[in-house]
Design a protein around this nucleic acid. Structure first.
Lengths: 230, 230
DNA sequence: CTAATTTTCTATCATCCGATAGAAATCTGT
DNA sequence: ACAGATTTCTATCGGATGATAGAAAATTAG
């Protein structure tokens, strides 16, 4: 409680026009994502972020209220983008699940439709730093960040849990289903987290083209097999 | 390069007796593991560590040369303990692998003998903080830490890779085998990293007793299945 | 053009951090 | 008990960090 517990709220903005400053805000956001991803929350100093963005230091406080606010804004920015890119596919799957007479093969296909885009995104995410930002933030337990994170992870997990539950013919709340679901989703995030290890083990430089295809096939094969046995 | 690149080496010690100070060293080490695990490297200040250990601040520099040295010492301390507790089992497996005529069932049993103790350790590691320390350190890319980490992870991965390669009848360097091996080992670490998520999804308070048994069974069942279905 | 508002900048604060100096206290072997 | 080495302490340094004050510049509306 020694800290400045002044719970500073974000500055009011965007009532009038003044579209000029929107650009600095954007620059700051992108520089922050990059540096948070590369260095982590603590090591990425506000000065380095401001310099990297080509703006002056106080702009950071002006637009985001402080470092923590900036970090939260980064998370929201990425979350929003991921949602718009993955949302449609998952919505389609969710709708398809309303049919109660789906066979095992169809359910597996739906699972694949959820899993593959996510995996592909994690392996090749356009700005290299996005998924990395998440990986960092998750490990750092940034204040109130889990809430935002779960908007993506939680939805995905819920969807995967339902599909696996129906494949196994068990209640989604039971241990078998829940554990398997977490493992499946966790496997996908591994592609990001253990990326250097995987690449080194394989002697690959990256996950481009043919290699991404192989990666997806092997991982999917493992998932499908683990849900078929017994 | 602005930093004090004085590459300070550890103080000489332990030539004579002077066993009195060994206790402070130990206290410092244990307090550091706890705080590094709870707060991460940056947030765990040297002052907090010293206070928590009940010693004065300069003792930290005296015994470990600095914060970084202390962190490295923590990693070595944990690594050593894990090795002594897991080493015998893996050595036995390694030796059993010298036989070339092992059947699928036998190979699976060997894999299980490697995987289960590791999983159990990750789920219930005595001082709650040890595995957490690793999780943090891995994400933080502490300087030269990967080397130490790989003394455990690397050996385990190599062993798992060989077993899976023989089960699948493929060269251990190929993509199928290497990817699967990383996934299997990664699944185990998930138990630590995603621990709160798993517990919440299951409505469990912890991984004690019967629940640990269930966890092990479900995870192992998934691994075994994924290696059986062609 | 002018007044009101928004945005940016320079300079500075207060604090925390890791590290060190150097004296004081403690321990060990003889 | 004594000399020499080791361990611990108080006080302080230099530097980096996040944040702010307040003037200056830029932008918009009337």
């Amino acid at each position: 409680m020694t800290r400045t517990a002044k719970t500073r709220r974000r500055r009011r903005r965007a009532d009038g026009g003044y579209a000029r400053g929107e650009q600095t805000r954007r620059r700051l956001l992108e520089a922050a994502i990059e540096l948070f991803a590369e260095l982590g929350y603590e090591r990425a100093s506000t000065r380095a972020i401001a310099t990297h963005a080509g703006v002056s230091l106080p702009a950071l406080q002006y637009y985001f209220g402080g470092k923590e606010g900036l970090h939260r804004a980064c998370a929201e920015y990425i979350t929003e983008d991921v949602r718009t890119r993955l949302g449609p596919a998952t919505d389609r799957v969710r709708q398809a699940l309303s049919r109660r007479d789906l066979g095992r093969a169809e359910l597996l296909e739906l699972l694949r439709a959820v899993v593959e885009p996510f995996l592909e995104g994690l392996a090749t995410e356009r700005p290299e730093s996005w998924a990395l930002f998440f990986a960092r933030a998750q490990g750092e337990h940034s204040a109130g960040f889990d809430t935002i994170f779960q908007q993506i992870g939680g939805r995905l997990l819920a969807l995967v849990t339902e599909i696996i539950g129906r494949i196994l013919g068990r209640p989604p709340s039971g241990p078998e289903v829940a554990i398997r679901a977490v493992i499946v989703v966790g496997q996908l995030t591994l592609v990001r987290r253990a990326r250097p290890i995987i690449l080194r083990a394989l002697g690959w430089p990256n996950f481009a083209g043919e290699r991404l295809q192989t990666l997806k096939e092997v991982i999917w094969d493992g998932i499908a097999s683990s849900l078929s046995g017994h």
